[in-house]
């Protein structure tokens, strides 16, 4: 599984890149990403609720935000 690099990107680019990347994987597969914008802590869960994709994990590790999303449809 490759990790989507969202480091250094600010709103709205993390979710714009996520929306693009999630279309490139199959339904049921997961996408892992890492970002530095603290805004993703609120935005990624909201994006998952809006799109229906499942947020598997979201955690802050050493000033970086790691998250995994499973494609729903």
């Amino acid at each position: 599984m490759t990790t989507l690099d969202l480091k250094g990107l600010l709103c709205p680019m993390p979710i714009v890149k996520m929306a693009k990347a999630i279309k490139e994987i199959e339904v049921g597969q997961t996408l892992e990403a890492v970002a530095t914008d603290p805004g993703v802590m609120a935005d990624v869960p909201a994006w998952c609720r809006s799109t229906g994709h499942e947020l598997v994990t979201l955690e802050k590790l050493d000033k970086q935000f790691h998250f995994v999303v499973r494609r729903a449809q």
Binding site: C11, P12, V16, A19, A46, W47, S50, G52
Partner: peptide, 12 residues
């Protein structure tokens, strides 16, 4: 453009 791209990325 930020709101519009964010909305489109969220499936709107």
């Amino acid at each position: 453009f930020i709101i519009a791209t964010g909305a489109a990325a969220s499936g709107m």
